[in-house]
């Protein structure tokens, strides 16, 4: 699937550019794309390393344990195939908590570690498990309650009430997550 999308982006992009006479722009995109990825990685490196360090303290202190423990009923429902007290549950819990609070950069290392732990429970190493599909679906349904940067942009552009959309945003986020979970559950059952 990912191969297909990636191939489509590259091949489709270049062929359209050829048809529209925009090859110079694609040349620039190829060159600048790699550069911006490395720049992003450098920014990320600092923040992710910082949060991974903090996360490790939370882990060793047993805080993530407590968090995962509190989420047990939800985890049992969402990830029945992941045994209780498995590390995957802890990282998933940490990822969800960070996402809720809008700490996207802290969510990424926890999420990647959760995937690594889920992979240990996987028998077919190149095929996603139901738990992985569920985890990523929830992750991509957006969990963040208040998107601070949107509020900042609204303020910047002179909104009279920048935060008036917060309630609706939370309602919409709740709906996307709920629908994501339901669809993933149904798909899991039907194969």
């Amino acid at each position: 699937m990912l191969d297909a999308i990636w191939g489509f982006f590259i091949i489709g992009g270049i062929l359209t550019a050829a048809a529209l006479g925009r090859m110079d722009m694609v040349t620039a995109a190829v060159l600048s794309g790699g550069k911006s990825a490395v720049e992003l990685a450098i920014t990320m490196a600092g923040v992710i390393a910082m949060w991974s360090g903090i996360l490790k303290i939370a882990e060793k202190g047993g805080m993530i344990d407590i968090l995962a423990e509190k989420l047990t009923p939800a985890m049992d429902f969402l990830f029945p195939s992941v045994p209780r007290h498995h590390k995957a549950r802890q990282y998933i819990a940490a990822n969800f908590a960070a996402n809720f609070l809008g700490l996207g950069w802290a969510a990424t290392p926890a999420g990647l570690m959760a995937m690594k732990e889920l992979q240990k429970l996987n028998r077919e190493k190149d095929r996603a498990t139901g738990a992985m599909c569920m985890f990523l679906t929830i992750n991509m349904s957006s969990l963040q309650l208040v998107t601070v940067n949107i509020l900042a942009y609204r303020t910047e552009f002179g909104s009279a009430a920048p935060a008036e959309i917060v309630g609706i945003g939370i309602a919409a986020t709740f709906m996307t997550t709920l629908v994501g979970i339901i669809v993933a559950k149904i798909m899991d059952r039907t194969g």
Binding site: M1, L2, L118, R127, C133, L136, M140, V183, A184, M187
Partner: peptide, 17 residues
């Protein structure tokens, strides 16, 4: 997330998302 652990068959993740 998937490529970090070498998953190629993503099953129903994309439709759900």
């Amino acid at each position: 997330y998937f490529l970090s652990i070498g998953i190629r068959k993503t099953r129903y993740t994309l439709p759900c998302a």
